[in-house]
Amino acid sequence: MLVIMKSSATEEEIGRVIERIEVEGLSAHVSRGMERTVIGVIGQGVDVHRIAGVLGGMSGVESLVPISKPFKLASREFHPQDTVVEVNGVRIGGEEVVVIGGPCSVESEEQTLATARAVKAAGGKLLRGGAYKPRTSPYSFRGMGVRGLEILARAREETGLGVVTEVMSVEELPVVMEYADMLQIGTRNMQNYALLEAVGRTEMPVLLKRGMSATVEEWLLAAEYIMAQGNRRVVLCERGIRSFDPYTRNVFDVGAIALVKGLSHLPVIGDPSQGTGRASLVVPVSLAAVAAGADGLLVEVHPNPEGAMSDNAQQVTFEGFEELMAGVRRVASAIGRSAAEPAREPQGVSA
């Protein structure tokens, strides 16, 4: 339930309500708005009616509201205002549509640095790249591991772009945290609850991809696992769901972006590369995602897609990324938002 405090409620009254919630063995999650403070009450195995009677009579409490959604902390009922997640100084969920670009996999320092420079020059705000890659076949290229993380850090040093990279297990989490600015939870790990809870105990921003066969509710409940551990810095990523049609790798659910923006206060971005599996579809699907309300995009970019060591069919060239950014700026402007202009400052000096 939600405890709505009066606009005149004092900090002492708010504190007493929080203390009583915790005495009852429940968790109190505080959301402070411009006019009122709202306290979310989360927990199981209690008499809801009794708790409501106790809290409803406390000083400073205006009303109690049940949360109808199973995803409590991620719902707009709990937090009506949009959440903005900051990553290396970049705000995701605000007025600007943030584009994250980079290779599917880190393959070499030369490839990654060239891509990072191109992404920044075109207006990308963060750098993506896989150092650890979950692959369907154990014989496919599965990433460079720690060396890949070191290369991503080198690219950040030169370009200033924050690093978004995937963590695949609880065991890998400490080393990935040393190098990343944002932790990515991939589609195969969306319901890896031990990993979700582990990243929830960190204070790092988390990019949570939708599972390839997940419903919207399952996706939001995965976010709930992270948030229930105390980490509210979650960005949702629609990356397409599995279908019977072989013409696209997945079905990119544009409607889910608009739907989730209504259900949840968390930022939502789209991954048109994984979502379609075809480079020729990345630009039009990106524009559709922005028009539907996406707060950003996650795009795979490579200097030579044909020679890429993973997912070569869906990675765009540097020129393709420039085209995408130009289109994103036009669509964002048309719906009252913005996207970064091409960078005009020097791109850094190589060591």
Rank of each mutant, 00 (worst) to 15 (best):
D82L: 08
V46T: 10
V87N: 06
K69A: 05
S63T: 15
I67V: 13
V97C: 11
V61T: 00
G45M: 05
F71W: 10
E86W: 03
G53L: 15
M58L: 11
V85G: 11
G93R: 06
E95P: 04
V41P: 02
R50G: 09
F71N: 01
G45P: 04
L64Q: 09
Q44F: 09
I92A: 07
D82E: 14
H49R: 14
V46I: 13
G101V: 08
I42P: 02
V87E: 03
G56K: 00
E62K: 13
H49D: 14
V99H: 11
G60F: 03
I67H: 00
N88D: 12
D47H: 05
V46H: 14
R76D: 04
V61W: 00
S68K: 04
G93W: 02
G43P: 08
L73I: 11
S59W: 09
S59V: 10
E86Q: 11
G102C: 09
V98E: 07
N88L: 05
R91A: 12
E77S: 06
D82Y: 06
P70R: 09
N88F: 09
Q81A: 12
R76F: 00
P103G: 09
P103Y: 07
G94V: 03
L55R: 00
A52S: 11
V97G: 14
K72V: 15
E86F: 03
V97T: 15
I92R: 10
H49V: 14
E95N: 11
T83D: 12
I100G: 06
R91S: 13
P70C: 08
P66Y: 05
N88I: 08
V84Q: 07
V99Q: 03
L73T: 06
V61K: 06
E95C: 03
V41D: 07
H49T: 12
V54G: 12
I51A: 03
V98I: 15
G57I: 06
E62A: 15
G45Y: 00
N88Q: 07
G60I: 02
D82W: 09
V98K: 10
E86N: 08
V54M: 14
V65T: 12
I51H: 08
G57W: 00
V84A: 09
G60C: 05
H49E: 15
L55K: 00
E77P: 01
V46S: 06
S75C: 03
R76P: 05
V48T: 08
M58I: 10
F78H: 01
D47G: 04
V97E: 11
I92H: 04
F78D: 01
F71R: 02
V99I: 10
D47V: 00
G93Q: 06
P70A: 00
S59D: 14
M58N: 09
G56T: 08
R76H: 09
V54N: 12
G93V: 03
R91D: 11
G43R: 07
F71K: 04
V98Y: 08
G53S: 15
M58D: 04
P70I: 05
K69N: 04
L64K: 13
E86I: 07
R76W: 03
S68H: 09
G57A: 02
I100Q: 06
P80A: 02
G89Q: 05
F78Y: 10
R76K: 12
I92V: 15
P103F: 04
G93M: 04
S75P: 00
I42H: 01
V65F: 12
V90I: 13
E96H: 12
G101A: 13
I100H: 05
V90R: 13
E77R: 03
